[in-house]
Every structure is written in structure tokens, then in C-alpha cells.
Write a protein that binds this DNA or RNA. Structure first.
Length: 571
RNA sequence: CGGGGCGUAGCGCAGCCUGGUAGCGCGCCUGCUUUGGGAGCAGGAUGUCGGAGGUUCGAAUCCUCUCGCCCCGACCA
């Protein structure tokens, strides 16, 4: 490709809205442009990267025995009503009406559509197992799209669904996909980790997320430093810590804490360690108020509480509800005498002399003891795992914390969709049975963003070779006839050798071309210059590490070829 | 959904408080010079000041409403 013909509008400055590296560089380097919040156009460079990723995904899934299909993007509402997700999915599901007034869902995922396809045409155990996948645009009307391709509303996802004669076979396929995913992310050049995860809205009872490790990641994960246990903090198990305090250390005493409702401020005012504080969170679970008690320095694990309550909806109560329940301003809630079920973390039960809200504006209490002051509270593990916690799986390990970008997720679904939607087959004995299922997603566009989060420097992107838009950039640094002729000849020869070349033939100064090549992130660069012509050499530079070597013109193709082979083989 | 902020040229921003008819840098166009890390000089084009209404002789500026966008939190395959 000649750079002079390529639509790659690079920007010297990033739009103010871009906050993370991948968003900044994808925009500055001319890979994407925003059309609306969370909705992006892919320019030629961006599309080339997406195609590279898709190709790797297709190769590995085909190799693993899956078959590609393409399902519609618009699904009739009746299908989603069958699975009850029309009601349950909430406002994230974009709904549209056709000219006749019929309701449709803009597909955020395709369990219903695929089950409908399979239940119509797959009737015998002889047709199973089956694993079908598609690569398609998805739409999720996120409350808060952010960070460019990292969390868009419209994005490209690979989703796969498998159907089986029994659960054992579904678990076998789960492992098969798990292995395929590991190969895919490795080939994309990503540093990742598979972690145990909550199943969320998709449902099912076993899942792993594939997390690309990056400080800018949205997900918090913990991994044991001794064994191989790793989990999203939403899911991470904890060992029960501390014994309930048998007796109170002293009587409950009210203290004046004017205007300090935020726990950090109360800590500062009273000069007591934050571990002695009890945080009282008021939540709404399926319309009813509940209270959760945690030590001041801990975070609630919403997934754990939701599971314990058997609730489908759980969110923090609004300020008005909190004030009404505690008869105090927000920030002064305590569990004493609350007219709602109270759940306490074991660490709270272990305190004999805690500090918590007084249910009275501008007041707290000290001397709090759960057994005495809120005897009705149920004690259960409620907190989010953090670095330093003891591993729940092995004897001596402790958790370390990481940030991750979720690029893939595999689920064992069981019959969550196939049972209500009557996706059945006849077994060898002629008996009708429901097909157990699995489903498997990969965020294609998110991989592009994650790769940049993991591979960039101050000058721009450093693409892993297998997903780079081009393998090598040729920079013609000069206008001399010999320079141009040599560059042209290299462009031809590299192309003939099967290497993807971006030939910067623009009438620009060398500095501009160097800056653009770095920003766009082409892994290799060949510079053809006047000085080199005299020596019969060109310069070969690697974007990562910046190593420059002079190579004789006659050897340039072979040297580039070797570096490309090495980069692709490592994947 | 709670909190905060921003919409002025393609991008980054100033101007707004204290109303007087829009400016800077980058980019873009033309010419000359320059040519190994985002060149210099000279000339030039580009704005419904997000939208609607109001106040006023006069609104980018003040008031009301509205739309869009961003950030933090909550939530989320």
C-alpha cells in the first residue's frame, strides 16, 4: 500500500475526550473516528487490524471443530420473550419497531437466535455435538460507554454456541474452547490470564474470563501466589477470617462528628484505625431494603450478596431512602435498630469495640459489638477479595491483585436456554432430551484496544506483528532519484515476498514520515536515504526496542522476511 | 441512575466574570526556500460560537429550556 493513497489521517493532538492510551492512539493514528457516543467507524488501518484478529479467531475455531454462520442482527421480540430476557435484560437491550409496529431486539448476544436455528433443524443425537459461531456487530446500550473501542456500544464480537447430548460432552467442549481461546490470545501477542468469573446476565454456572493484563483494565482480578487459582474479584472466594467477638468491650457511646459522613473523614477526625469502623450500606434488593455491614476498609461484593439473597436486582438505595430508613443524613447510618434485614461480614462480627453511624445526623457511636447491638444480623462473607487475602484454594498462598481487560469469556450454560425454548433431540433410545449448551465470546474490537494498552510508548502504538496493519513501513527519506528508485524496488520485492508493506511515498519531510510510522505502530521500518545509497545500505529498525541495523540493499528482503517469520512464529 | 464538567474553525484552546458583531496554535490551500525525527518565510481559505426561546439598541458573553459529549461513582456478556 502506498501511504500517499491511504486514508490514515493522523493527528498531532488527541481529542480531549480520549483518556486512555488505546483511545488516544487509535484516534491520533487514524484507525478510528467517532460517530456517536460509543459508536466508531473503522478506517482502513483499523479495519486491517480487525481483519487480522478475525482471521486468527477463524483459524483456531475452525481447527477446534466449530463452524461459522451469520445470524441476523435484528431478533423478533417473541424469541426474547421465550427466554424471558425481553423483560430481564433491561435498558441495555436496544429495542426497535418495524413499520408494522412489531418489536425487535438489536442483538447484544445471540443465544435465542441460535437456539431457534438449532431446534428447528437438529433433531437427532447423530447431529450432535455442534458448535456454531459468528463474527458480527453487537449493540449494547451501555449506561456509560468509554475509552473508545474498549467499551463501545456497538462493537464486533465473535460469539459461539455449542450443543450437546449430555453435560459431560458440554464440559469437554468447554475445555476445547478454553484451549482454543488460549491459542488465539497467544497468537494475537497478548499477555493474558484465564480467571474464574461470575456468569452475569448470560447465566449458567461455570465460566472463565480471559483477561488481558493492563493497568488501565476495568476488571479487578486476584491470583494466588502459590497455586494456579485466579478469579475476577466478583467471583473470588475468601476464607472466613476472625472469630466473632464474644463480648462487647464497653458500652455504646454516642460521639459528635459534625459534617463528616465520608468514612475517610471520620477516620481522620477520630484518629482511629479504619479497621475499627463498620460501614453500613443500605441497598435495594428486588424492591426491598437490606443493610450490609463491612469493615471500613473493605468493599462490598455485590455478586456474593445477591447470591445470598437470591435477588435478581441489587443496587445501592437512593439518598432519600437511606435518610428515611436511618432518620439521618446519608453518611451516618448504623445497623442498630434498622427495620430491615441486616447482613454482616465476619470481620464485622469480630469487632468488640467498633465505630459506626448513630442513625443521627452528625453523630457516630463507638463501642459497637454486633452480637449485642445488632443481634439479628446474619453473618456471611460479603466482601470483595483484595491483595494480601489468604487463598481460598490452597494452604499457604495469598492473593495478588491485577487489572484486566476482558477479551474473552467461556460459559457452561447447561439448559438455561434450551429448556425454556424446547431445544431437544431424540437420543439413541428414541427418548426426547434437552440439549445442554455452552457459549463462548470474544471481543474482536476490544482485542485491538487491549493490544495497544499493553503495547505502546510515548510515540504511539507498538503492534504485535500478527495483528499489525502492516508488517513493515518503507520510508523514502529524500527525493533523490536513486533513493526513490531503491525504495520503489524494495516495495515491489517485499510485496512479492508476501510481506505487507506500507510504502511512505508521500512528499513529506523524513521527520513527518518517522513520526507517523511510529504513531501507527508498524513493527518494522526500512529507511532508504541518501547517505545509505553511497554505502549501498538501508536501515532496518524495529519499532519495539528501537534497534537499528544497517543492511546491504540486496539483503533487505531476506532480513525483513526473517524478522517477520520470527514475529509470526512466536505467536 | 447519583455527582462533576465541557460544547467557539478539522484538532487543541482563549474570549464569557465586566454585552459592542470572534481570536491563537496546529492542520488545510498557494508560492519560494528547506529536506534524517511533526521546517522557515510570505500570502490565503475556513465559524448557523451545539439548538430554541427570552432580556437588550446590540448576545459567544446575561436568563430559561433543550440536545450532545466527557469524567468519577453505581451498574454491566
Amino acid at each position: 500500500m502506498r501511504h500517499s493513497k491511504l486514508l490514515a489521517p493522523t493527528l498531532r493532538e488527541a481529542p480531549a475526550e480520549a483518556q486512555v492510551a488505546s483511545h488516544v492512539f487509535l484516534t491520533r493514528a487514524g484507525f478510528i473516528r467517532k460517530l456517536a457516543a460509543g459508536i466508531y467507524s473503522l478506517l482502513p488501518l483499523g479495519l486491517r487490524v480487525v481483519h487480522k484478529i478475525e482471521r486468527i479467531v477463524r483459524e483456531e475455531l475452525d481447527r477446534a471443530g466449530a463452524q461459522e454462520v451469520l445470524l441476523p442482527m435484528l431478533h423478533p421480540a417473541e424469541l426474547w420473550q421465550e427466554s424471558e430476557r425481553w423483560q430481564k435484560y433491561g435498558p441495555e437491550l436496544l429495542r426497535v419497531k418495524d413499520r408494522k409496529g412489531a418489536d425487535f431486539a438489536v442483538s447484544p448476544t445471540a443465544e435465542e437466535a441460535i437456539v431457534d436455528l438449532v431446534r428447528r433443524d437438529v433433531k437427532s443425537f447423530r447431529q450432535l455435538p455442534l458448535n456454531l459461531y459468528q463474527i458480527q456487530d453487537k449493540f449494547r446500550d451501555e449506561m456509560r460507554p468509554r475509552a473508545g473501542l474498549m467499551r463501545g456500544r456497538e462493537f464486533i464480537m465473535k460469539d459461539a454456541y455449542s450443543f450437546h447430548t449430555d453435560e459431560a460432552d458440554a464440559h469437554r467442549e468447554y475445555q476445547n474452547m478454553y484451549d482454543a481461546y488460549a491459542r488465539i490470545f497467544k497468537r494475537c501477542g497478548l499477555e493474558f490470564r484465564a480467571v474464574e468469573a461470575d456468569t452475569g446476565a448470560i447465566g449458567g454456572n461455570k465460566s472463565h474470563e480471559f483477561q488481558v493484563l493492563a493497568d488501565s483494565g476495568e476488571d479487578a482480578i486476584v491470583a494466588c501466589d502459590q497455586c494456579d487459582y485466579a478469579a475476577n474479584v466478583e467471583k473470588a472466594e475468601l476464607l472466613p477470617e476472625g472469630q466473632p467477638a464474644a463480648t462487647a468491650a464497653r458500652a455504646l457511646e454516642e460521639i459528635h462528628t459534625p459534617g463528616v459522613g465520608v468514612i475517610e473523614d471520620v477516620v481522620r477526625l477520630l484518629g482511629e484505625p479504619i479497621e475499627r469502623f463498620v460501614k453500613t450500606l443500605i441497598l435495594v434488593a428486588d424492591g426491598k431494603l437490606v443493610a450490609a455491614l463491612l469493615r471500613g476498609d473493605r468493599d462490598l461484593n455485590v455478586v456474593k450478596l445477591k447470591a445470598a439473597l437470591g435477588a435478581t436486582e441489587l443496587e445501592l438505595a437512593g439518598d432519600a431512602a437511606v435518610s428515611a430508613a436511618t432518620k439521618a443524613k446519608v453518611g451516618f447510618a448504623g445497623p442498630q435498630g434498622l427495620a430491615m434485614p441486616v447482613y454482616a461480614d465476619p470481620e464485622v462480627a469480630a469487632l468488640s469495640d467498633g465505630i459506626t453511624g448513630a442513625n443521627k445526623t452528625d453523630h457516630h457511636v463507638r463501642g459497637f459489638h454486633l452480637g449485642r447491638d445488632c443481634a439479628s444480623a446474619k453473618v456471611l462473607d460479603l466482601r470483595t477479595a483484595a491483595a494480601g487475602d489468604r487463598c481460598a484454594r490452597c494452604a499457604g498462598g495469598h492473593y495478588r491483585a491485577f487489572r484486566g481487560i476482558e477479551v474473552g469469556h467461556v460459559f457452561f450454560l447447561g439448559t438455561k436456554y434450551s429448556a425454556p425454548m424446547k431445544c431437544t433431540f431424540l437420543d439413541a433410545g428414541g427418548k426426547e432430551q434437552v440439549m445442554p449448551m455452552g457459549c463462548y465470546g470474544i471481543g474482536i474490537t476490544r482485542i485491538a484496544a487491549a493490544a495497544i494498552e499493553q503495547n505502546h510508548d510515548a510515540d504511539g502504538i507498538i503492534w504485535p506483528l500478527p495483528i499489525a496493519p502492516f508488517h513493515v513501513a518503507i520510508v523514502a527519506a529524500g527525493k533523490e532519484a536513486e533513493v526513490l528508485a531503491t525504495a520503489e524496488e524494495l516495495y515491489r520485492a517485499l510485496g512479492a515476498a508476501g510481506i505487507e508493506v506500507l510504502f511512505d511515498d508521500r512528499d513529506e519531510r523524513p521527520g513527518v514520515k518517522f513520526k507517523d510510522a511510529d504513531l501507527i505502530g508498524i513493527p518494522l521500518r526500512v529507511t532508504v536515504g541518501k547517505k545509505g545509497m553511497a554505502e549501498g545500505i538501508v536501515e532496518l529498525k524495529q519499532r519495539r526496542g528501537g534497534v537499528v541495523v544497517k543492511v546491504p540493499i540486496a539483503e533487505a528482503v531476506a532480513r525483513v522476511r526473517a524478522l517477520c517469520d520470527e514475529g509470526l512464529a512466536r505467536a
